[in-house]
Amino acid sequence: MSGGTIYGVGLGPGDPDLMSVRADRLLRNARHVAFFRKPGRNGQARKIVDGMIPGSATEFPMEYPVTTEIPLSDPRYNALLATFYEDCAAHLKNLSNTGEDVVVLCEGDPFFYGSFMHLYSRLRDGAQVKIVPAITGMSGAWTATGDPITWGDDVLTILMGTLPEDDLARRMAQTDALVVMKIGRNIEKVKRALKTAGLYDRAWIVEYAQMPNQRVCKLSDDCEEITPYFSIIIVHGQGRRP
């Protein structure tokens, strides 16, 4: 396939030192850099690579039309985001068609619950797209607690805080180790589900994992200073070991 390459570059959990050598090389030689952000914000991905992008590079901030303003169940939510992703993908493809390479910044790993996947599904058949994998945010979070997440035959379950409370509690009760993402305004629901599943006293919350402002707290302790945004909840497995 002719033209430039669109790179989905995983930045890891937040510390630039944890990025791959390949990601670092692509960033420092980039001519075009795209990244997601909320309107009026710098964007978390862009903050991570501050000082690494050449001053001559052209930056393309992709600003979400909606985040939490309307509920996920509202048909407008998917409609607005679908149009947004179509427009962003078209812009990247146009650059690629002119022979330009584009680096798209992705927090964590590009193929793990990230916005880049929505661009990838629209670009993969009409442009050359390459993925640079990275350490996930959840890996950075459980490492921050200082204990292994799984032992022996432990089953690890990853849940989204956006799920209904009954579903959360049921799935939590069926696993050995647990990661809960997308907490945000769902924090109280997640706490209740953890209590129902009998996991609340084993749960940790990690904010800004592997970043300079990282904070780690046992959920049952006084964690009021930790905001649920940019936070992940961790429950360690207690499985078989020698």
Rank of each mutant, 00 (worst) to 15 (best):
M1R: 05
S2A: 10
G3M: 04
G3K: 02
I6M: 01
I6R: 05
G8A: 15
V9F: 00
G10K: 03
L11I: 00
G14L: 10
D15I: 13
D15C: 08
L18I: 07
M19N: 00
V21E: 15
V21W: 14
V21H: 13
R22A: 12
R25I: 03
N29A: 03
N29G: 13
F35R: 13
F36G: 05
R37K: 13
G40C: 00
G40Q: 00
G43I: 02
G43Q: 01
G43H: 02
K47S: 05
D50L: 04
D50G: 04
G51Q: 09
M52I: 00
I53F: 03
P54E: 00
G55Y: 07
G55C: 08
E59C: 08
E59Y: 02
P61K: 06
P61A: 04
M62Q: 11
M62R: 10
Y64V: 08
Y64Q: 05
P65T: 14
T67H: 13
S73E: 08
Y77P: 00
A79I: 02
L81F: 03
F84E: 14
E86R: 02
D87W: 00
D87M: 04
D87P: 01
C88D: 01
A90L: 06
H91E: 14
T98D: 03
E100S: 08
V102I: 08
V102L: 02
G108H: 12
P110R: 10
F111L: 12
Y113K: 08
Y113D: 11
H118W: 02
R122D: 04
R122P: 00
R124M: 13
D125H: 10
D125R: 09
G126K: 07
Q128P: 01
V129Y: 07
I135F: 05
T136M: 12
G137Q: 07
G137L: 11
S139M: 12
S139C: 10
T143W: 02
A144H: 08
G146R: 06
G146Q: 06
W151F: 13
W151I: 10
D153K: 13
D154T: 04
T157A: 07
L159P: 10
T162M: 12
P164N: 11
E165S: 05
L168Q: 14
A169I: 07
A169M: 09
R170C: 11
A173V: 06
A173W: 10
D176T: 06
A177Y: 10
A177W: 09
L178D: 14
K182V: 07
K182C: 07
K182I: 06
R185H: 15
R185Q: 15
I187D: 14
V190M: 14
V190D: 15
K191E: 15
L194H: 14
G198E: 11
L199Q: 12
Y200E: 06
R202E: 15
Q210L: 09
Q210Y: 12
Q210T: 15
M211R: 11
M211S: 03
N213W: 02
N213I: 02
N213F: 04
V216Q: 00
K218V: 07
L219W: 11
D221Q: 01
D222Y: 04
D222F: 05
D222A: 04
C223D: 15
E225N: 00
E225Y: 00
P228H: 10
I232S: 10
I232W: 14
V235G: 00
Q238M: 12
G239L: 14
R240C: 08
R241C: 12
R241S: 13
